[in-house]
Write a protein that binds this DNA or RNA. Structure first.
Lengths: 150, 150
DNA sequence: ATCATTGCAAAGTTTTTGCACCTGC
DNA sequence: GCAGGTGCAAAAACTTTGCAATGAT
């Protein structure tokens, strides 16, 4: 938690109860969630909490590297805690298709084929984004029915 | 073109003038486009053409492997011709950030790190999605200002 | 005290749905 | 002829914006 507070401060953002609760939500859930899910959680803890507040904060958190944002086929934004050592360093994510839990994958072998792709396609590569889906160990054990959201 | 007609037929879809024009549009443009862009093009060729028709067809084409669908930060769906040898085979895409041209990358070295990721994360990997962005040879030569849409 | 943050209401955008009519096969 | 395709209107779903009030530092 302190880690994220520091990031907020170092980016000139104020520490508000709602912001702390949003971060808390992601720390506890430890998975990707929709804006609405975050809002529903906040409504349990605060009498007054507007949906725009949630949108605005999730977007900001995403900008400063606390959260990662993913758009999916169902036209919703999903956010998840960026649990890499250095949030802004190069890494990818694996998402559980059952519980939406997300883990950062801190290594990547894309560079090995960069040159080959550039040669074959004629493109100058700027960046890449890899999204891995799977089932986490918790859900593998539960052996429940597979519901794919992401 | 015949290639795509075949795919339509083999999936039990009828060949209509609008569908042919949609495919034609993507063959000529050779890049990702928004639903609205496709619609604007169709409006030039048909007196009556509804936006829902475009949505419905792009979605279907995506299901049968003619088009690839990408969701971006601007909350729009982008579609592009799936120009891999076998549209449904495993491959990835590189997208030009300037002109949105898209090329299929027919090789992938992800499998090499599958086991490592599974061991470290505890996840059972189901699939992965890689999106590469770059500048195509045409745009590199033009040396225009870099506008990033995707 | 100051400026970021928030709540509320409203609007904006993209996408989907229902249904009657049309059309390819 | 019949199932699938289309147009239109409407609604749904998600997200953003403006502004006044509130709150963190």
């Amino acid at each position: 938690m302190e880690k994220y507070i520091k990031i907020l401060k170092s980016n000139g953002l104020k520490i508000t109860p709602k912001r702390k609760e949003i971060i808390n939500f992601f720390i506890e859930k430890d998975r990707y969630a929709t804006v609405e899910e975050v809002w529903n959680n906040l409504k349990l803890k605060f009498k007054k909490i507007g949906l725009p507040t949630v949108y605005r904060n999730l977007e900001k958190f995403s900008e400063i590297g606390i959260l990662t944002e993913i758009r999916t086929r169902d036209n919703k934004a999903y956010y998840g805690l960026c649990n890499a050592e250095n949030p802004k360093s190069h890494h990818h994510h694996i998402i559980c298709v059952k519980c939406h839990k997300v883990r950062c994958i801190d290594f990547c072998n894309f560079n090995e084929i960069t040159e080959k792709i550039e040669k074959e396609s004629g493109f100058k590569i700027l960046n890449h984004f890899l999204q891995i889906k799977g089932i986490c160990s918790d859900c593998l054990q539960l052996n429940e029915k597979n519901k794919s959201f992401i």
